[in-house]
Amino acid sequence: MSETLKKLSDEGVSIWLDDISRDRLRTGNLEDLVRDRQVVGVTSNPTIFAKALSKGTAYDDQLRDLAVRGVDVEEAARAITTYDIRWGCDVLRPVYERTDHLDGRVSIEVDPRLARETEKTVAEARALWWMVERPNLYIKIPATREGLPAITTAIGEGISVNVTLIFSLERYGEVIDAYFTGLEQARAAGRDLSQIASVASFFVSRVDTEIDKRLDKLGSEEAKALKSKAGVANARLAYALYEERFASDRWKALKDAGARPQRPLWASTGVKDPALPDTLYVDELVAPGTVNTMPEATLEAEADHGEVRGDTVRGAYDGARAHMAALKDAGVDYDDVVRVLEDEGVDKFEVSWRELLGTIQNELNDKGAAK
């Protein structure tokens, strides 16, 4: 048991693993991480599944059966990914019960090719919710302009949602509003609001990657002094917005009806710049009622040498605002940064999904030829 991870958990940070694979499930590794590393949730994305499919033989038996049945690649992808997610949900079900349904959650993403299509995203969310059929499931819906009404509809229908690919404070405010509206629709339909949950995944390291690239182009010493601080500052201001919006009269009415807050989740917490501390986006974003979803390397780094110093968010709002103002003064266009990051995020997941489909198609062809 890592004392550092226990301290992090005691500060109100739920530790989730940003990874899933058939090997991890089959070997009991996920159960080990729950026991030894304070892991209380799991997130997945197309890149994670593409990586899992490309390694080892864990999926061979299922792929062979799918090939024998003549299943097309789209259906095969859903069969394979939902199998892992169901298994993950079952492993984490005791955590779900122990935490009064707060944690023990596993996330699966809608087809990223649908990120700009509201109705298709809703249909996909419904299909995944039905296919997995576990109460501790989250459906990941991207926070694109077209994703916002899909989030509202899903929440209104009682589907728990992990809102992903949030980069900007303005969009985060719209995500919170979409959640509130969905809950209001669910309440009007007579649904039990206590059974609906959501997290809002605010991406961190990618903000630094994009802004640091722009600061390097500016080239001045003043610009270079601003590097590698925007990701944390942006996330801290997101938490300030969370505190503000979840203190409103609108939220109080929903809370009184049984609703649960939509917790901020820090995503993209693996450090991209090797010059930075590898626990930066964990140690600097400790605040109650948050989730930090970590790649395994970041999780192990935090367990080994992380420094949990209590709440590192709520006392740092002024500094975060000053840093973002300094970036603006230096010539960094925040609105353009977050637009680029959203577009790139959607594109990267779409590429990964197509790679996943390609890998599965090749495996189906091979298994079909061998039957």
Rank of each mutant, 00 (worst) to 15 (best):
S9F: 10
E11S: 13
E11Q: 15
G12I: 06
G12W: 04
D18Q: 13
D18C: 12
T27K: 15
E31I: 03
E31C: 01
V34G: 06
Q38N: 08
V40Q: 12
S44C: 05
A50G: 03
D65Y: 02
R69P: 00
T82E: 09
D84Y: 04
R86V: 05
R86G: 14
V91T: 09
L92S: 09
L92N: 07
L92M: 07
P94C: 05
Y96D: 01
E97R: 10
D100P: 00
H101A: 14
D103L: 03
L114D: 03
A115M: 07
A115Q: 09
T121V: 09
A123H: 15
E124H: 03
A127D: 09
L128Q: 10
E133V: 00
E133M: 06
I141Q: 03
T144E: 06
E146R: 09
T152N: 01
T153D: 10
G156V: 02
E157G: 02
I166L: 13
S168M: 02
G182I: 07
Q185H: 06
A188Q: 08
A188G: 04
S194A: 14
K213D: 10
S220H: 12
S228P: 00
S228H: 14
Y239T: 05
Y242K: 07
S248H: 08
G258T: 00
P261T: 12
L276G: 06
P277T: 09
Y281H: 02
D283W: 02
E284K: 13
E284L: 11
N292C: 08
P295N: 08
L299M: 11
E300W: 06
G306M: 14
D311M: 07
Y317A: 11
A320P: 00
A322T: 01
K328I: 04
A330M: 12
D333Q: 02
V346T: 11
D347S: 15
V351E: 14
R354Y: 05
T359P: 00
L364E: 01
L364R: 10
